[in-house]
Design a protein around this nucleic acid. Structure first.
Lengths: 201, 201
DNA sequence: GCAAAAATGGACCCGCAAGTACAGTTCGAT
DNA sequence: ATCGAACTGTACTTGCGGGTCCATTTTTGC
C-alpha cells in the first residue's frame, strides 16, 4: 500500500507541519506553508491526508504528544529522590523558559487540542500517560522514604500535571515562566518530606 | 460623538461576540455570526470597531476579564477562614464543572488571550489583579492564624492562580474538572494550617 | 422645525487558503 | 521489460470571511 518513499514523505509533511505550528501557531499555519517547508505539493498532502487539514492536525498532535513523552521519559523514570525531583523541575522550567511560547506541550494542549474531538482525545491520553508516569515516580519516592507516605500518589500526580499545565498556560499569556516555577516548587514542597530547608527558593 | 443608542448597540455587539466566543471558540466565530446574534449589520460593527476584528476581540477580552473579576469579587474579599477558602474552592470547581468548556476564564486565557499582544496584555493584567486579590486573602488568613505564616503570600497566590489555570486548561482538553478540584485541594492543604483532618477530601 | 451628525441596512468586493482534477513520473513485483 | 500501483507537480475552482461603500433613516443640538 505504501512504499518507504511514501512513508518518508508523509513523515516529512508531519514534521514540517509540527515545526511550523510550533513556531508560528496553529491558526496562522496554512497548508501551503507546510508544503513549502516540506518541499512537497498539495497533491501529496491530500494523498496522505485525504481528510485534509483536520487529519493532518491530528497527526501532528499525535506526533508532538509522542515527542513530549519521549523527552520526559529519561527524567520520569528516575524520580526517586528529592534531588531527582528538583532536577526534573529544573529541566521543565528551563525548557519552558527557553522555548517560550513555542513549547510543544503548550501548543499542544492550549492550541491543537481544541481542533475537534479526535485531537482532544489524543491530548487527554497524553495527560493520562504523563500522570501515570509521575504517579510511579511518587510511589517510588514514597517507598524510598523521601516523600510524604500519607499522600494519595495518583491524586498528587494529577495535581502536579495540572500545575505544569497551569504554568504553561500562564507562560503563554504573559510570556513569563515564573508562575510555573513557583507553583512547581510549591508542589515539591508539599510532596517531599520536610527537611532542613523550608523557606522559599 | 456617541449617543446612548450607539452605546447600547456597541454593547450588544460586544456581548454577542463574547457569548459566541464562549460557546463556540474564537477561531470559528465569524463577524457575521456576531452580527446575526446581535441583530446588527457589518456596517455597525465597523462603525464601532474601525480596526475590525482584532479591535472587537480586544473589547471582548476586556469585557470578559471584568466579568471574571466581578464574579470573584464577593468571594475573594472574605478569604480569611478555612471555611471561606473551601467555599471559594467549591464555587470555582462547581462553576467550571457546570460551564464546562464555556467557562469565560478558560476561553479568555487559553483562547482569546493569544490573538495579538494587546489582548495578551489584558489577560496578563487580569492574572495580576486576581493574584493580588488572592494574596490579600492569604495575608488575612495568616493574620487570623489559620494559614501557615511562614509562606510567602505573593508566591503562594501565584501558585494558586497557576493551579486554577492548569485545572481549567485540563478541563478544556479533557472535559473533566476533576484535575482542577484535586489540584486546588492540594493548594489549600498546603496553605491552611494542619488540623484534625489530613486525609484526602 | 431643521441642518448636521450619528446610526443603520444591505449589497458588494477581494484575497486567501482549503480542496480538486488531472496529467506525468517513479517504483516494484513478476 | 512491463504493467499496474504508488507517488508527485501544476494549474485550477470555490467558498468563506474580513473589510468597504453608499444610500437611507434616526437622533441631537439649537
Amino acid at each position: 500500500m505504501t512504499t518507504p518513499k511514501g512513508i518518508a514523505t508523509r513523515r516529512r509533511i508531519v514534521e514540517a507541519a509540527a515545526a511550523e505550528i510550533r513556531e508560528r501557531g496553529t491558526i496562522v499555519t496554512t497548508l501551503d506553508d507546510v508544503c513549502r517547508r516540506s518541499g512537497t505539493g498539495k497533491s501529496q498532502l491530500f494523498h496522505y491526508f485525504p481528510e485534509g487539514r483536520e487529519q493532518l492536525l491530528l497527526a501532528v498532535t499525535e506526533f508532538e504528544a509522542e515527542r513530549v513523552l519521549d523527552d520526559q521519559h529519561p527524567y520520569l523514570h528516575e524520580l526517586t529522590s528529592r534531588t531527582a525531583w528538583e532536577a526534573w523541575r529544573d529541566v521543565i522550567v528551563e525548557r519552558c523558559r527557553n522555548q517560550g511560547p513555542h513549547c510543544p506541550l503548550g501548543v499542544l494542549i492550549a492550541d491543537v487540542g481544541r481542533y475537534g474531538p479526535a485531537a482532544r482525545a489524543v491530548t487527554t491520553q497524553l495527560i493520562r500517560r504523563w500522570q501515570d508516569a509521575v504517579r510511579d515516580g511518587i510511589e517510588a519516592t514514597q517507598a524510598a522514604g523521601e516523600a510524604d507516605p500519607s499522600l494519595d500518589a495518583d491524586r498528587m500526580a494529577a495535581a502536579v500535571v495540572t500545575t505544569i499545565q497551569g504554568g504553561v498556560s500562564v507562560l503563554l499569556s504573559t510570556g513569563s515562566a515564573d508562575h510555573l516555577e513557583v507553583a512547581l516548587n510549591l508542589c515539591l514542597d508539599h510532596l517531599l518530606v520536610a527537611d532542613v530547608r523550608h523557606g522559599q527558593r
